[in-house]
Design a binder for these strands. Structure first.
Length: 884
RNA sequence: GGGCGCUUAGCUCAGUUGGUUAGAGCAUCUGCCUUACACGCAGAGGGUCGGGGGUUCGAGUCCCUCAGCGCCCACCA
């Protein structure tokens, strides 16, 4: 081991692990299964910080569970990402001056597949860079033959059960993508728009009614004006009274409907069934005609205005012109500023148009109910817990899911329309004829399914469903889903619904929701803001390990985490620390005779006991935190232990023994060093796999495995569970060293200078400075001690420099301040406890208030305080002394 | 309009079921190249835990309230 150069070791070990097949799950294993399916990144994607975080966390869990003895499957793969991918390839075509229509459907799809083969592997390659221990032999793609089979199976079964239907409805239409999108694919943004008040004259010339709208261009498709039946202002107007719709020459009726809010606007609403979802509903209720005045691309059609006056104009241009005309003709009453939420396409940001078209829908309520129950009854658990509220909020108000998309790239809807009898044949296999009238004139639906339809099946389709595979039997339900909260509705909720429906079991028992990664200010990283940090750059500069440690440290289960390179820089320092400490340790292990340390605990000195006890409880603490997906805490615990306990204290203390002649005890120390280092490496490995493997390979261990990946997690060992008093003695020794160092600092004694120390000890620790003289001397740079036994239990050293006796003057003002604080606190404490005892007595009289836990706490407190009595007295004396 | 979350040191954040003197990293200051590591070592300073009220022997932690910030959902034309 020489110098730590991450770039030289990371690829090497990844290749080694792959070749050895350590990532492969074994569906015949006798070990308990543990499975995770990756949230499939878009095939168009490249690794961003969000992926880096999400996949690091999954890898930490996967590696941890392997060490815990599980048969781990982490299944990787990509999503075909309908619109996103089609957009990318369309852009590519545009560069060649072509449109997808020029190629035709077949050719265009061929182009996308070619693109996928060429570029679709990017992100999967990048995941390897990160160290992801995915089972690549099971890599899946949502458009694989097998997964497509699953999609068809699900579609047909839902259709046959009446849970999928087709019909003409108002949907969210993106005029740029030229497809319908589902409700959750619409992002609402507050726009400062206008509220246009327009006069609609009565046909009999008796005046006019005033309506208000934010989208005047839709008036061309109005087929009624509605008022509330209880509205006093309009009570005298009969339902069916005709109005003349300006700019169209058409006559439309006034209708009465409770949908209208009397308080809002003028209380009269123009009804445009073709261009507004509410109006559509009203239209259905009142059997109003539907007049569509727009093309799919958002331009006005030939029905827009008298003689198609506005035909061909973009919807926003038409708005301007209509307003202008209305103004000229005196129909425009006023324009008010009006802020309102406007829907945008989440893919391309274009303003979405409510548009009538024939689409396929999933009747979602029957699927949602069991999915709600599964979370309510704890079958599926969210971490952090509060996300289930968000889940319930959405699931309880869920609306039918529009699943058809007017795209070419995706799973084609397995429905065929008969030209003759209009019957729809829905089938897994391509039918030759209409199933009803046997006509040969059938055509398949041109549309494809929402990308999320196929990814909703991911946890079981990837395991081979609908075939009854061994993988499915072993690995379904998966153990945990690790994902960001941004796709809670898109993906998580749908998986729970579809998993329960088709497998009878939830797709996973736990959902670990991770944060989204923002920039240093916590803001979303986006290309337009120019604040994107590429994880691959970070890996290049620091190391995958440092990036991974950063990710784990930052993951505190908050919504956003702010990534800063500084943080990674710091953890790169930790990687270096791990490497150097290991290098040093290993260099001191030569000639080690390995022993079972559990058998030597009786003869062990305190530092050895202390560090063994520390590593022992660490393994337990880490497990507890990892099992609860408390990643930040996990990272902090191991960081603190390795750096501060192991490096700063234990390694420094061990130097004393290591400098001595070979002895039996020196060998014990070597064994302790080896065990602690080995255990730390195994526990660090899930987070920082590369550097730990590199070091592990250099450990002088007889029962070394082929790889650290085959090592088992250190189990809690009772032999290393030493009595608290012994460990307290260690604490006292350490605080003695600390106090000496502190005083040295206060007294401005150079670290280079050695000092004599005057130490006041309590009885119990009378021999401390004798027992650990060499350690204290070395770590506190002390030459000699003068020890005095005092009654106080606070270890308080006073330094002597050279011949100059500092004596009691060595206690500086800060120290006094501290002690005053202690005393004040004690007095308060005494009062509190006294009150507490009265409180407890009162409560004891009432059996309903008996609280044993509280009583116990109070007893403990009281006992502690008695222990402090002597201290308080001594400190008071001391302060009185100093005051004189 | 409904819902969720946040407010703790200069900055970014931890603080598990209420329990000794509220922590970390970075930053700042002081002193050290002590032969694993200057990507280091030893110390120091810095917080009335957003305001107010309540419950409790005890509140950063539980309840109420006010203020500010952020996010999600939603068809008020």
């Amino acid at each position: 081991m020489d110098k730590y150069i991450p770039s030289e070791i990371e690829d090497k070990w990844y290749t080694y692990w792959s070749e050895k097949g350590y990532f492969k799950a074994d569906n015949t294993s006798s070990k308990p299964p543990f499975s995770i399916v990756i949230p499939p990144p878009n095939v168009t994607g490249s690794l961003h910080m969000g992926h880096a975080l999400n996949n690091t966390l999954q890898d930490v869990i996967a590696r941890y569970k392997r060490a815990k003895g599980f048969n781990v499957l982490w299944l990787p793969g990509c999503d075909h990402a309908g619109i996103a991918t089609q957009n990318v390839v369309e852009r590519e075509l545009k560069k060649e001056g072509k449109k997808k229509a020029d190629l035709g459907r077949e050719e265009f799809l061929k182009r996308i597949w070619e693109w996928k083969e060429k570029y679709g592997t990017t992100i999967m390659r990048q995941l390897r860079k990160l160290g992801s221990s995915c089972d690549w032999s099971r890599e899946r793609f949502t458009m694989d033959a097998g997964l497509s089979e699953a999609v068809k199976e699900v579609f047909v079964r839902l259709y046959n059960e009446g849970l999928i239907y087709r019909g003409d409805y108002i949907v969210n239409w993106c005029p740029r993508c030229l497809t319908a999108i589902s409700d959750i694919e619409v992002t609402h943004k507050d726009i400062a728009g206008h509220f246009y008040h327009i006069k609609y004259p009565y046909a009999d010339g008796s005046g006019f009614i005033e309506v208000a709208t934010t989208r005047p261009e839709t008036m061309l498709g109005d087929t009624a004006v509605a008022v509330n039946p209880t509205d006093e202002r309009y009570k005298h107007i009969k339902e069916g009274t005709m109005l003349i719709l300006p700019e169209t020459g058409r006559q439309i009726p006034i209708i009465k409907d409770t949908y209208v809010d009397k308080e809002f606007g003028t209380g009269a609403v123009k009804i445009t069934p073709a261009h507004d979802p509410n109006d559509f509903e009203v239209g259905v209720r009142h059997k109003l005609p539907i007049i569509n005045v727009m093309h799919e691309n958002g331009k006005m059609n030939e029905k827009a205005g008298e003689n198609g006056k506005y035909s061909g104009l973009d919807r926003f241009e038409a708005r301007k012109q209509i307003v202008e005309t209305l103004k000229e003709q005196g129909y425009l009453v006023k324009i008010e500023d009006h802020k309102h939420a406007v829907g945008h396409c989440y893919r391309c940001e274009t303003i979405v148009e409510p548009y009538i078209s024939a689409q396929w829908f999933v009747r979602i309520k029957p699927l949602a109910e069991p999915a709600i129950r599964a979370v309510e009854d704890g079958t599926v658990v969210f971490t952090p817990d509060h996300w289930k509220k968000v889940y319930f909020e959405w699931m309880n108000n869920i609306k039918d899911w529009c699943i058809s998309r007017q795209l070419w790239w995706g799973h084609r809807i397995p429905a065929w329309y008969c030209d003759d009898c209009k019957h729809i044949t829905v089938s897994k296999t391509t039918p030759q004829k209409c199933e009803k009238c046997s006509s040969l004139n059938i055509k398949q639906d041109k549309d494809v399914l929402d990308t999320w339809f196929s990814s909703g099946l991911w946890p079981f389709s990837t395991l081979g469903w609908p075939e009854k595979t061994q993988d499915l039997a072993v690995f379904y339900p998966t153990s945990v889903l690790v994902t960001g909260w941004d796709i809670l509705f898109f993906w998580v909720a749908r998986m729970i619904m579809l998993g329960l429906k088709f497998m009878g079991k939830p797709p996973f028992y736990e959902v670990a929701i991770n944060s989204l990664v923002g920039d240093s200010e916590g803001k979303k990283m986006s290309k337009s803001k120019g604040n994107v940090i590429d994880p691959l750059d970070i890996i290049k500069t620091y190391s995958a390990d440092a990036l991974r440690f950063t990710m784990v440290s930052l993951e505190t289960q908050s919504r956003y985490i702010a990534f800063t390179e500084e943080r990674t820089k710091g953890y790169a320092g930790f990687m270096n620390k791990i490497f150097n400490a290991s290098k040093y340790t290993i260099s001191n292990l030569s000639g080690i005779k390995e022993v079972d340390l559990a058998k030597y605990t009786a003869s062990m000195k305190l530092p050895e006991k202390w560090i063994l006890s520390g590593v022992n409880s660490l393994s337990k603490k880490l497990s507890e935190n990892l099992d609860k997906y408390k990643f930040s805490e996990t990272a902090a615990l191991i960081y603190d232990f390795f750096w501060h306990d192991f490096c700063d204290w234990y390694i420094e203390m061990s130097k004393i023994e290591l400098l001595k002649e070979d002895s039996e005890y020196k060998n014990i120390v070597k064994n302790v060093l080896l065990k602690v280092l080995r255990d730390c490496l195994v526990m660090l490995h899930p987070v920082v796999p590369f550097v730990t493997e590199e070091i592990y390979m250099n450990l002088p261990m007889s029962n070394k495995k082929e790889s650290i990946m085959l090592e088992t997690w250190p189990e809690y060992n009772k032999s290393f569970n030493f009595p608290a008093d012994e460990l307290n003695e260690m604490d006292d020794m350490m605080s003695l060293i600390y106090r000496i160092r502190q005083l040295r600092g206060d007294l401005e004694i150079s670290p280079a200078d050695k000092v004599e120390a005057y130490v006041v000890m309590e009885d119990k620790r009378a021999d401390l400075t004798l027992k650990f003289a060499d350690i204290i001397k070395m770590l506190a740079k002390v030459t000699e001690f003068t020890t005095e036994i005092g009654a106080n239990r606070v270890v308080r050293p006073v330094t002597v420099v050279g011949n100059r006796v500092i004596g009691k003057a060595g206690i500086n003002t800060t120290a006094i301040k501290d002690k005053q604080k202690v005393i004040t606190n004690k007095e308060k404490k005494v009062a509190d406890i006294e009150k507490g005892i009265i409180g407890v007595k009162n409560k004891l009289n009432n059996p309903n208030f008996v609280n044993n836990a509280m009583k116990k706490t109070l007893d403990e407190e009281k006992a502690k305080l008695e222990g402090y009595e002597a201290d308080i007295k001594v400190l008071m004396d001391l302060i009185n002394d100093l005051k004189k």
